[in-house]
Design a protein around this nucleic acid. Structure first.
Lengths: 165, 165
DNA sequence: AAGTTCGTACAGTTTAAACTGTACAGAAAT
DNA sequence: ATTTCTGTACAGTTTAAACTGTACGAACTT
């Protein structure tokens, strides 16, 4: 096998991993650039700067800048300092599974809690109205919806405590 | 309180519930029409036909037709027969939480499994290549990614068995 | 201080998702 | 058999997300 062939095959595999892995990450409300960038950093044996990312994914520098910021927010990557290096460097965080679940589940739970609170507020507003068949029916439905949200919260809380073997 | 005022307030509450509850459902990869339609059926005390849905949500009949089909696929609503009624009638399924989690988690798991299998395939392809520092490094990363997928599968499997109080 | 370089804000473009209106096939009614 | 009605396929439009290129402030270099 020639040298060109070998590195070419490695590059292919590299791209295939990005393609597949990022599909999973996109399921967790990351957009394509964010997902692909994370996997790229994850597969890199050294930290990368914006220009290298841009080169690696064939996208604009702005897209890379935005994606890094989101991934930093989500605590999935970190900035790395290196002496004499002017450009910002980033690497994927270690301990992928825990970091990922923690961040993801947290965002998820926050959103669900918000909606649950709003439903509670609506329920209280409804209590101020006088009785009617219609009112009682809706009240019951809202109550059930709130329980549904509570169940979701409960089950996602469990994800936070689930240990990887 | 006048009668107009009363029903108006009930309508407001109705809409607020649709607004809030559908946000939660949208988090589970349902689109706006599907989410809103589900909540509408959920809050209705009787089955609805396409024209009633269209009226209730202010959207096109085509949108309602598409949304019902998806919700049927996801097993979240069911068709109801009524004597002498020509139009198709639909209602939300009972046992919201279990139906919802089951469908959702199933779709989720199927997708993750697919990507895990693809990563396994890539890993095997890599094994065919001769050794190098680069190869060993990537191989390790792919392996870790597969374990990540396995953990996700495991934890989502648990959701299927989680019981509502 | 003047000149570079870096990251990001912003406005504009492209691409994809959501939605609409029309037209039509199949079923029901007359 | 003809007409009416219902659900959906399809093509086209609107709206939102993703992305790009330019411009510029801040930080660094000379």
């Amino acid at each position: 096998m020639t040298m060109e062939n070998y590195t070419e095959q490695l590059t292919d595999i590299h791209n295939e991993v990005i393609s597949e892995f990022s599909k999973t990450l996109e399921m967790f409300a990351l957009n394509p650039s964010e997902s692909q960038l994370f996997v790229t950093l994850y597969l890199s044996n050294r930290p990368m700067n914006l220009d290298e990312m841009k080169e690696a994914l064939g996208k604009s520098k702005t897209a890379m800048s935005n994606a890094t910021r989101t991934l930093l927010d989500y605590n999935l990557i970190e900035r790395v300092w290196r002496k004499g290096e002017r450009k910002d460097l980033y690497k994927a965080k270690e301990d992928l599974y825990h970091k990922f679940m923690k961040t993801y589940v947290r965002r998820w739970l926050d959103a669900i809690e918000q909606q649950k609170n709003n439903l509670n507020f609506i329920e209280n507003k409804l209590r101020g109205l006088s009785n009617s068949e219609e009112r009682v029916f809706i009240e019951e439905k809202i109550h059930e919806a709130i329980l549904f949200h509570k169940s979701l919260e409960e089950v996602f809380e469990q994800l936070n405590h689930h240990e990887i073997e």
